[in-house]
C-alpha cells in the first residue's frame, strides 16, 4: 500500500513563539480515511496547512506522494459573484484547463454531490449544506489522490451534518482518495473513518491511533449500535486523558 501522506516527527513553532505541533508522526495510505480529533487550539488546522504546503514545518519532515491534493476549508469559501458551476470550475480555470473540459468536469462533480439543477445559483441563494456541497465538489473535481478536510461540517446544523457525513462516505467509496479529516466530533470521526488519530492539547501530539473496523458503506443506524458506542467511548477516553 502506498503511503500518500507521511508526517515524520513534525513540529511547528510560529514566529510568535507558539508551539502548535510537537513531534507529530502520522501517515495516510491510499484508500484510508484518517480522522484527527483533538481539543480546540491543539494544532489540527496547522497540521493540514503543513500537509498541503500552505505553511512550512520547523522540525521533522513531510512526504506527499500525490499528483493532486485538495483542501476543504471550515467555511465553504465560495466566491460570491460566481455561480455554483463556475465556483467548481475555478481550480481548473486557475490551472489553465480548457473551458469545455473543465466545465464538463465541474458539471459531473456537481451532479455527484446532488446539486444537479443548481448550477446557475449563486452562493447567497444556497443553504449552508448546499454551499458545503459545492465546496466539496470543487475539491473533488481535480480527482485528488489526497483530500484534506478542516472541520468542514462544523458550522452545519445537526441534521444536515449527519446527511453530509453519509454523502461524504459514499464519495470516498467512489473516488478512493486518501483522506485526512479534522473534526472535534468524536461520533463523526468514528462514523467516517478507517482510523481515528487523537491529539493532545497544545502543543499537539498524537496520543492514540485507533483503527475502525467496519467496511463501507456504513448505514446511518450504525451510530446506534453498541460497538459504535464502545469505540466512541474509547476515543473520548483518550481525548479526556490528554486535554
Amino acid at each position: 500500500m502506498t503511503r500518500t501522506l507521511v508526517l515524520d516527527d513534525v513540529s511547528k513553532t510560529f514566529p510568535t513563539g507558539t508551539v502548535a505541533l510537537d513531534g507529530v508522526s502520522l501517515s495516510v495510505a491510499a484508500g484510508e480515511f484518517v480522522t484527527v480529533v483533538g481539543p480546540s487550539g491543539c494544532g489540527k488546522s496547522t497540521l493540514l496547512r503543513l500537509a498541503s504546503g500552505l505553511d512550512e514545518v520547523t522540525g521533522g519532515e513531510i512526504e506527499v506522494n500525490a499528483t493532486s491534493t485538495s483542501y476543504v476549508f471550515q467555511e465553504a469559501t465560495l466566491l460570491e459573484w460566481r455561480s455554483a458551476l463556475r465556483n467548481v470550475e475555478l481550480a481548473g480555470e486557475l490551472r489553465g484547463a480548457a473551458k469545455p473540459d473543465r466545465r464538463r468536469r465541474a458539471q459531473e462533480a456537481l451532479d455527484l454531490v446532488g446539486l444537479s439543477g443548481f448550477e446557475k445559483q449563486h452562493p447567497r441563494q444556497l443553504s449552508g449544506g448546499m454551499r458545503m456541497r459545492v465546496s466539496i465538489a470543487r475539491a473533488l473535481v481535480a480527482e485528488p489522490d489526497l483530500a484534506l478536510f478542516d472541520e468542514p461540517f462544523g458550522a452545519l446544523d445537526e441534521i444536515t451534518r449527519l446527511r453530509m457525513q453519509t454523502e461524504l462516505q459514499s464519495l470516498f467509496e467512489l473516488k478512493n482518495f486518501a483522506g485526512l479529516f479534522i473534526t472535534h466530533s468524536v461520533s463523526e470521526a468514528v462514523y467516517l473513518s478507517t482510523r481515528v488519530v487523537v491529539m493532545s492539547g497544545r502543543p499537539g501530539r498524537v496520543v492514540a491511533d485507533i483503527p475502525v473496523p467496519w467496511s463501507y458503506p456504513r448505514p446511518p443506524e450504525l451510530r446506534y449500535e453498541p460497538e459504535f458506542a464502545a469505540l466512541t467511548g474509547e476515543v473520548s477516553a483518550a481525548l479526556g486523558e490528554h486535554s
Binding site: 446532488g114 446539486l115 448546499m130 444536515t160 446527511r163 454523502e167 459514499s170 458503506p217
Partner: peptide, 22 residues
C-alpha cells in the same frame, strides 16, 4: 452507486429562492 447522488437536496433549499427559480 453513490448515495450522494440519490440524496436530492431539495429539502434544504431556502424557501423563497425556490419559488423564484420555479
Amino acid at each position: 452507486m453513490s448515495a450522494a447522488a440519490v440524496n436530492a437536496p431539495a429539502a434544504d433549499t431556502q424557501s423563497g429562492t425556490r419559488d423564484v427559480v420555479a
